[in-house]
């Protein structure tokens, strides 16, 4: 399995060929608390890196999710419709949000490695 990369807005992406699987980090899921609804884009929608792609509603608040990479929505995680708490139980695996067919694989240079993301979280909380 390829490495999980992160944004400073707490999204993650795993790139496999031309496809990136996208979700929110375990840290983000914990901060949000129980997730009760995920408003996901339509399959086929065009997304631009840094643009809003989804909204998650937790028991506490609504939060926007931004595209870590540009491309076209290839698939959304249908399991979140009936079981949004899956994001809390398995944020970086089964609780993925969507898959993006990438328009520019080179954009991955903007993302953080797992180590850099952990360091970023420590700086944030310091």
């Amino acid at each position: 399995m390829s490495a999980t990369l992160y944004t400073k807005q707490h999204e993650w992406a795993r790139i496999e060929g031309e496809i990136a699987i996208v979700g929110i980090s375990a840290y983000a899921a914990e901060q949000l608390g129980d997730i009760v609804y995920a408003d996901l884009p339509e399959k086929g929608a065009t997304v631009a890196r840094g643009g809003e792609i989804a909204v998650v509603e937790s028991v506490k608040a609504a939060s926007e999710i931004y595209a870590p990479l540009s491309g076209e929505v290839a698939e959304i995680n249908a399991a979140l419709e009936g079981d949004p708490e899956l994001v809390n139980r398995s944020p970086e695996k089964e609780g993925w949000f969507l898959k993006i067919r990438l328009s520019d694989v080179g954009e991955r240079r903007h993302l953080l490695s797992a180590e850099d993301y952990q360091r970023f979280l420590q700086e944030e909380s310091a």
Binding site: Q9, I24, L32, K60, A62, S63
Partner: peptide, 8 residues
């Protein structure tokens, strides 16, 4: 991710 209503 950004939150509209951060915890107080």
């Amino acid at each position: 991710m950004s939150s509209a209503a951060e915890g107080a």
